[in-house]
């Protein structure tokens, strides 16, 4: 069960990084601000999943609930900003 959770977290990190790269290329080409917000959002998502992964593998023993919650909130704010307006 634990290894399944680790695999899923790893997949989420890889996908977040792929989406961050796509957003980066889109921003470089267009200089659209929403692409920049998406880039930051996907990077934060990768960091969040990375922290969760560290906790799952017991490399971090502290309670990271607050940090994860904060990252989630910022991720969602960036998504809203990306959709707001060009």
């Amino acid at each position: 069960m634990m290894s399944m959770e680790i695999t899923l977290a790893l997949i989420a990190v890889v996908l977040s990084l792929i989406l961050a790269k796509v957003s980066f290329v889109a921003y470089k080409k267009s200089h659209l601000r929403p692409a920049l917000y998406l880039l930051m959002a996907f990077l934060l998502l990768a960091v969040k999943k990375g922290v969760e992964l560290l906790q799952l593998t017991e490399r971090v023993e502290r309670d990271v609930g607050l940090a994860i919650g904060g990252l989630e909130a910022v991720f969602l704010i960036l998504l809203v900003l990306a959709l707001w307006r060009r």
Partner: peptide
Amino acid sequence: IWENLADRLIDLLTGIG
């Protein structure tokens, strides 16, 4: 392939609204 995906994202973002 990155450029193709980025192009689709640009169209998606510019199409909002």
